Each structure stands twice: as C-alpha cells, then as structure tokens.
Amino acid sequence: MSSIQVRPATLRDAKAIAQIHTVASQEVYKELVPSAQLKSLTLEERHAYWREAIEYCEPQVQVAVAGEKIVGFVGYDRSRDEQSRPTTGEIWAIYAAPSHWSQGVGLALWDAARDGLHEEGCTNVTAWVPLRNERALRFHELAGFKRDLASAKTALIGGVKIEEVRLKRPLNSQSSLAGAPRYPGK
C-alpha cells in the first residue's frame, strides 16, 4: 500500500475530483440508479461544481494523493440542514477512486475532514448516505457515526428517488477507523 497524503484542493485539482466523483458514483450507484440516468451526470457539470466549490471554499475540499495522483477527495463544511446547530459540521461528499478502495484513502480523508471541522469549532458532524449504499454506511459506522433513523428522506440522484439517512457523531470522540478494515469512502 502506498502512502496517502491529504492536502487542500487547488483549482487545478477540480478535473481529477470530477473524474473520481463520476467514476465512483457510477460504480456505487450502478445497482440503485438506471445506467442512462447515471450517464446524464456529466463530467463537465461536476468539473464546474468542484471548481466553484474550491474557488469559494464551500464546501472546503481536500484531496488524497498517492504518489503524484489524486485518488480521492472530501468536501466538508457546516451542516446544510436548516435545523442544525452552528457547531454541526457535515461531510458533503467523500469519494475514493474505485481502484483505491480498501487502501486507506477514506480513512485519510475522514481524518482530514474531522480535523478541519474541529478547527472550525464544530462539535458534531453529520453525513447523508443512501440507505442501500452498504459500503458507505459501513465506512461511516466504523468511523463512529450512528444512524438517525428519524431523519430518513427521499433525495433525487440522477433523476431517481433514493432513500437517504443522516448519520451523526460527536467530533470530540477520536474514533477514526484505526485497526478496522478499510472501507474508503462512498
């Protein structure tokens, strides 16, 4: 396994982030969303989204690098949930390239996001995960997140309705997947 470094994303990273987001989403959602719908989520749209996110730091974006190659990313910031406290952060997105799943990328990204949210004064963190995305649910639960079953909602992903649940955990707890099997990202 190569050493994973995490650093803040730059505008030059937006294309690699968009590629990982596209490929990983197609892999993760292939059982949940019709392929025609998945293909409608274009690389160009994601590139524009991540470029703007990096430029305006909303969300904050960090990338995982193995050697010289970007192999994952995380976007995090304050919670977007209207009812949340100002000290609640949210993992907006966390993805690893499928070629780097189970190699510690998700762990490195989660650790960086946890540290960044803690520095921002957050005391809790949430993430929204599709109920049928077992890999992502397992990853977050190994990181100490608990399902908030009362939060279940329907979201549109690629034009298809997907049931999501909010997961949450306190940031003061140091649970970080250490010693657990590697399940890197969604």
Rank of each mutant, 00 (worst) to 15 (best):
R78W: 00
P184F: 07
V71G: 03
I70N: 09
Q26Y: 03
L43V: 15
D77P: 06
R80D: 07
S173Q: 11
I4N: 01
V71R: 03
Q62V: 10
A180W: 10
Y183P: 04
Y29F: 15
D13G: 04
R182A: 11
P86K: 03
E119T: 12
V61T: 13
E141T: 14
S84K: 08
P181K: 10
Q37G: 08
T10E: 10
Q83G: 10
P8L: 02
T42F: 01
A18V: 06
E164D: 09
C57K: 14
V71F: 02
G144R: 08
A64T: 02
S25C: 09
K186M: 15
A150M: 05
P184V: 01
V160Y: 02
E58V: 12
A36G: 03
F73Y: 07
G67T: 02
V125T: 08
E58W: 07
R78C: 00
E119C: 11
G116K: 14
V105N: 02
A66I: 00
K146G: 13
K69L: 07
L131I: 13
Y76L: 09
S79T: 11
P59I: 12
K69R: 13
R147E: 09
A112I: 04
S99C: 05
R85S: 15
T88W: 07
V74R: 00
L117T: 08
A152Y: 08
A14E: 05
C57A: 12
R135V: 12
E58T: 13
G116T: 12
Q19A: 13
S3M: 11
E163H: 04
Q26T: 01
A48R: 12
L177F: 10
L177Q: 12
L137T: 01
T126M: 14
E45K: 14
E134P: 04
K146M: 11
H21T: 10
V65E: 14
W50S: 03
H140C: 12
C122H: 11
T126W: 09
H21K: 10
F139H: 06
L131T: 12
L131Y: 00
V74P: 00
S99R: 10
R85C: 05
P170H: 09
D111N: 11
I4L: 08
P86M: 02
V74G: 02
V28P: 01
P98Q: 08
G116A: 14
R51M: 02
R132N: 13
I54A: 08
A143P: 01
S25Q: 01
T154K: 15
G89V: 00
Q26L: 03
A64N: 05
T10C: 06
